[in-house]
Design a protein around this nucleic acid. Sequence first.
DNA 1: TACCGAAGGACCC
DNA 2: CACCAGGGTCCTTCGTCC
Length: 553
Amino acid sequence: MIVKGARVLDGSANAMMKGKGTEDDRPWQSYHTVYTTAKAGMELVDKEKVQRVVYEMSKGSKYFQNEERKEAFIKQKIDNLRIQCANLTQEDLAHYQKVADRRIVELEASRDLSRIWLHVDMDAFYAAVETLSNPTLKGKPMAVGSMSMLSTANYEARKFGVRAAMPGFIARKLCPELIFVPTDFKKYTYYSDLTRKVFGRYDPNFIAGSLDEAYLDITEVCRERNVKSEEIAQELRAGVYEETGLTCSAGVAPNRLLAKVCSDINKPNGQYVLPNDRMAVMTFVSSLPIRKIGGIGKVTEHILKGVFGINTCEQMLEKSSYICAFFSQSTADFFCSVGLGLGQTDSPQVRFRKSISSERTFSATKDEVLLHKKLEELAEMLSADMQKEGLSGRTLTLKLKTASFEVRTRAVTLQKYISSSEDILKHAKKLLQAELPISVRLIGLRVSQFNGDKCSAKSDPTQKTITNFITSGDVNRNCSSFPDVADHDFVSNAETDMSIDSRQTGQLDWRDPFDGNYLSDVDYQSCTVQKSDGVEEVSLSPLVLPYITGFRN
DNA sequence: TACCGAAGGACCC
DNA sequence: CACCAGGGTCCTTCGTCC
């Protein structure tokens, strides 16, 4: 009965896009890839056609089959969550509503509208650089990358539906005229450095997100020069153009998460300013699709949409009781803060790399001699990179991608720190040996647990333990289950700083256990145990129904 | 129970 | 002709040891 209900829901959720029973006559509509969602410069693309071509080119391949497998897995997860959702009682809901409301009040209290953040994003960076060094490319559809994968495409190519993360052979099908240019990181780094010189004029401590984007705290420049953020953005973009001949887009907002969203709005060669005003932020966020938020990708979008009907950031708040019921606290915090339009506003920290790796794809083989040779090459490449960076580490991870695209990792942690190719190879061989025989299309090696990055936990386990027990997870909240440049930190800055700081200095000043946050954390815990008089009440703690839980059965 | 290591994923560019 | 990268970050779960 309930299951049936869930199916009905399933149908209606997709009905908006699919109409009834299109599964058979238009199968491509259900094949979603990361690169089929609209991007800047793709408004006029015949999406239906692109979908169809991508599907036709992919159908039946090993890659495709693996995608189907993963898709099925997620679909099942969604179904399960739906059922659990339907089983929530009124009391449960009332309880979680209270939890959510309290949390939202706390998050709201942490809102900081005192800083002005600017996010710069170069327009089709790699492609633009290549065009700069080869002007004959101007006006022609071109993409940077290879037949197997594209890093980016210029705007002419995007008109055909060609875009980053799309395999080249599919792109060529969409646009037979497409010119392929191999990637040349040296070139991009050179231009990236030029842009960064400009960024430094406005915020010497800017955060470089990648070669082509950065976050600047322009609060001080605006104040000192008594100019509006809009003018700073304008001037900065002009400066970048002057220094490099490249265009970029900018977004200005009270925090980094929103600034990033804003820089995408008037791309390319444009900017958008979201004023430091609570109402403006709430209005902005109310209609904003969750997928625009950094950290919410294809899967999370599917789940939130499919299970709770959440499409916009505002709906994160409307459904906050469900969110608190089904997700871990850090994840729930992130989602709610998205609904409030909160994001990081603190000053940048120096972040240290935590791992170094290299991996290579080749045509699938199970030839052990060949595999061994690949492994040896990788060990040498990795070792060379490590020497260059002066790194040594004690955890070695072997990564394999099977001929059927399944990814496996196997790791060992050694007593001593290693960096020589001999050491790496020696242990890598053992890891590989244990997996043979196997047919793989990719091998990778990664070293982590570097010498010198004291893991904070070791220094003072006791203190952490206690704090952790009470605050349950705030310590790692650095980024809820969503990686990336730490955009979604919504909670007070001191906390985040800690987890990052402690890592680099090794000498931590654990933040005082006092800021020991929020009663609500206690609440989260207590609701697990709540009414444990009747022993079987293990039910609905958010900790019991975790987010990405494997549901093996 | 607390930690940590290992394995698997989601996401980003 | 050809059939989907590579370099990272972080989160979550699980098993084992104490």
